[in-house]
Design a protein around this nucleic acid. Structure first.
Lengths: 141, 141
DNA sequence: ACCAAGATTTAGGTATACCTAAAAATGATC
DNA sequence: GATCATTTTTAGGTATACCTAAATCTTGGT
């Protein structure tokens, strides 16, 4: 499997803090499908970058900077996942793709997609648009 | 800068073949912002994978398999770039983001986006939808 | 046909994230 | 409070894509 990025580590640490109260080495390792020693190593680097506090044998805690990053990532993730689901992508797939896109999107594009999502889900015209798209797809087949 | 993937090499080789008749080491290196020796090394690997024929001191030529991959990538690229532009993302940015997304999208999502793009650009309802979105954005501000 | 200039490859080295196996720390149980 | 099972870290090693410097090939001008 591919090498994991800083962003992926930060996300999973955030998730574990929420779900389990703390982010332990072993749980992180499971979550991102990597062996524990690799996690220890990465946690040291994330600490150097000021994104987490790492306590030996205890685990990781996001710093304010890390939290900010996690919030940002989660926001990007939600934007993509919601948008894809609205367009009819199956839930599991939408999550998987969102997980990829969120790391590679420019601020400008993200903002535009956010707006489009808002348009689709919260305006009458947008909802009409989605209905029309559903109709369109039926005729495709 | 980030490490380059097989897909990025294949794309640029395809582009150079079209634009310049052949894909030379040095030109590839410039294009992906890497030094020539790194390209030589990668070309060997791409040849191993059956994606190109590599002739020492002459350059690379896509095999049918490589061409197929390039076509696929170009298609994905166009889908994303067109979609983003339709939604109002500025041209240069749309290209850059498409370049990222194209490597990370699942077949299912891609197909859905293709359909949505077709809907937006080729059906009256779709064009109406875009007009409504433009209107919506004006009110945002 | 030669030779210099330019391009490419070879040789050797770096950085990064991953791994396994072994050692050390933790903490639950008696 | 000692012991043992579990978790984590340490130590040492692999793979990959990148680099620089030096050697080699190719080619255009004479």
């Amino acid at each position: 499997m591919r090498k994991k990025t800083t962003e992926e580590y930060i996300e999973i640490i955030c998730l574990l803090e929420k779900q389990e109260g703390r982010a332990q080495t072993g749980r992180i390792a499971e979550a991102i499908n990597v062996k524990p020693p690799s996690v220890t190593e990465m946690l040291r680097k994330l600490e150097q970058k000021g994104l987490i506090v790492y306590e030996s044998y205890a685990g990781a805690t996001l710093t304010p900077v890390g939290e900010e990053m996690a919030r940002d990532l989660l926001g990007r993730h939600r934007t993509f996942a919601n948008l894809l689901e609205l367009l009819g992508v199956e839930g599991e797939t939408a999550e998987t793709d969102a997980c990829q896109f969120e790391h590679h999107v420019s601020p400008e594009t993200l903002e535009r997609l956010r707006l489009f999502l808002e348009f689709l889900s919260e305006s009458p015209d947008g909802r009409g648009c989605l209905a029309a798209f559903k109709e369109f797809q039926r005729h495709e087949r």
